[in-house]
Amino acid sequence: MTDLKEMLKIEAKDLDIVNLLISNPDNAQVSALTDLIEKFGGVEAINEKAKQARNPETLMQKLKEMGSPYVADLEWLMEQRDNKAFISMEDYCKNILGEDADIASIDSSKAVTLEISAMQFFPWLIAQAKQAIEKKELMPGRIIRVRNMAEQVKDDGDIMATALAMQIIGATYVESLDTRGTDGGNIHLGGGPETLSGFFGGIGQPNDYAIKWAEEYLHYYTNYGIKEVLNINSGTILLGY
């Protein structure tokens, strides 16, 4: 009988080929990426800037300095968290299954993550939080954002308010960068069935867009501490790794 696990092993010679591809000075994409990283100050400086930008105190201070109307909402959200206003999983289960339910017997290995897709405007999150508290619903723990990034920055600090709110409620979230072909760069995003293949498959995406995507990511990573962004094709996935 064939040992399938042995067949799945990656041979050293195959890894050598990958290393040769990455380190090849003629590899334009990798060279452009390393140049871009140096442009932003190098790996350590980039991560330190992102750490400072993501700091809750830093985000709140910037929002206060710009007079953002979202400060009050964020302070309210922190109060709700500290006062344990959101329903616990145990109490939620009792509400669904009854007070006498054996909560310990629930198979948590099959747990799911509640996700909002997409949460475009910060006030929507506050509305969701108020509803969750009032109706004793679970607060989603995963947020997807597909709003124009530049627009978020201009909208009273929406981008920073969201980054801070995610840390307050302990949720994960992902942004969608503007460099995804919807700016006219992808010739297949004209509507109809080809739109789906063009958006998700990256068909028709210009070769230089992967580097543009990486540069936009580093901008928002270092300025707002945004860790997760959607990638759109093989090129951005490669550079993301």
Rank of each mutant, 00 (worst) to 15 (best):
D3A: 07
L4M: 09
A12S: 13
N19D: 05
I22D: 02
N24P: 05
P25A: 03
D26I: 07
Q29M: 11
L33F: 12
E38A: 13
G41N: 00
G42C: 10
V43M: 06
N47M: 07
A50L: 05
K51E: 09
R54T: 01
D73Y: 11
D82P: 08
N83C: 00
A85V: 03
E99Y: 02
D100G: 04
I103L: 08
K110T: 12
A111R: 07
A111F: 05
K130M: 08
I133M: 07
E134S: 10
K135V: 13
E137A: 01
M139E: 06
P140R: 06
G141L: 14
R142L: 15
R145G: 12
V146C: 14
R147I: 12
N148V: 07
Q152C: 13
Q152N: 11
G157Y: 08
D158Y: 06
M160I: 08
A161F: 08
T162I: 15
Q167Y: 05
Q167A: 03
Q167V: 02
I169E: 06
I169W: 15
T172D: 12
Y173K: 01
G185H: 01
G192K: 05
F199H: 14
P206W: 00
D208Q: 12
A210I: 13
Y220N: 09
Y220C: 10
Y221A: 00
Y221R: 00
T222Y: 03
N231H: 11
N231I: 07
